[in-house]
C-alpha cells in the first residue's frame, strides 16, 4: 500500500457527521464533485476550497459521531483526504470509512501534539506515521476488515467475492 502524504488539517473532539456533511444535503447532493465541495461546510468553510489530495485530518476523540450517513466518509474521500487520524472514532463512522476505502487510524495521542499545516507522511502497511512532532506507531486494522479495505471499499470487495468484477 502506498504512502499517504499531505498537509495536516486539525480539529477537536466529537466532530459530528452534521458538520462534516450537513443533513439537509443528504437526499439532494449525490455528485462526488459537489459532495467534495460541501465537505466540512459547517465546521471549516476554508476546508473544501483548500484541501489537496493526500491531506490528512487529525482530530480528537469520537470523530464522526452522530448520523449513519456515509456521505460524511465519502465526501472526505472525494475531497482528496488521504486519511483520518483520531484518538477514537464513532463506530458507524469507522465502518463507513472502511467501506468507503478511506484509511482511518486510531492514535491515542492528543491532537495537540500536531500542528495544522504541517507535512505528514503515513506508512499504512508498516503502521507508522511521521511529521515534525515525531514518529508514531499505530495498530493495523483488524484482519477481518483489511480485505474490504484492500479491495478499495465494500462495494468493489463484494463484487470480487461474488465474482462480478468488471
Amino acid at each position: 500500500m502506498s504512502i499517504i502524504s499531505g498537509k495536516i488539517w486539525k480539529y477537536g473532539d466529537d466532530v459530528n457527521t452534521d458538520v462534516i456533511f450537513p443533513g439537509k444535503y443528504t437526499y439532494t447532493v449525490t455528485d462526488p464533485k459537489e459532495m467534495a465541495r460541501i465537505a466540512m461546510e459547517d465546521l471549516d468553510p476554508n476546508f473544501a476550497a483548500q484541501v489537496r489530495p493526500g491531506d490528512v485530518i487529525v482530530a480528537g476523540k469520537n470523530f464522526g459521531c452522530g448520523s449513519s450517513r456515509e456521505q460524511a466518509a465519502f465526501c472526505l474521500k472525494y475531497a482528496g483526504v488521504g486519511a483520518v487520524v483520531a484518538r477514537s472514532f464513532s463506530r458507524l463512522y469507522f465502518r463507513n470509512c472502511i467501506n468507503a476505502g478511506l484509511p482511518v487510524i486510531t492514535l491515542p495521542h492528543s491532537p495537540d501534539l500536531f500542528k495544522a499545516g504541517d507535512v505528514i507522511e503515513i506508512h499504512l502497511a508498516e503502521g507508522y506515521l511521521s511529521c515534525s512532532a515525531g514518529r508514531f506507531e499505530f495498530p493495523p486494522l483488524p484482519d477481518a476488515v483489511i480485505g474490504i479495505f484492500n479491495d478499495g471499499g465494500l462495494i468493489p470487495h463484494t463484487r470480487k467475492v461474488l465474482g462480478l468484477e468488471r
Binding site: 450517513r69 456515509e70 458507524l92 463507513n96 467501506n99 462495494i155 467475492v161 461474488l162
Partner: peptide, 30 residues
C-alpha cells in the same frame, strides 16, 4: 438499519444497530 437511531428497537430486547448505506446495499445483494 441504515439509520443511526435503529438502536431504538433494543427496547424490545433485540440487538439493533445502525449501519451505512453501502452495507445495506450489500445486505440487499448477499
Amino acid at each position: 438499519g441504515s439509520d443511526s437511531h435503529t438502536t431504538t428497537y433494543g427496547a424490545f430486547g433485540s440487538l439493533a444497530t445502525g449501519i451505512g448505506r453501502s452495507e445495506m446495499a450489500v445486505i440487499f445483494a448477499t
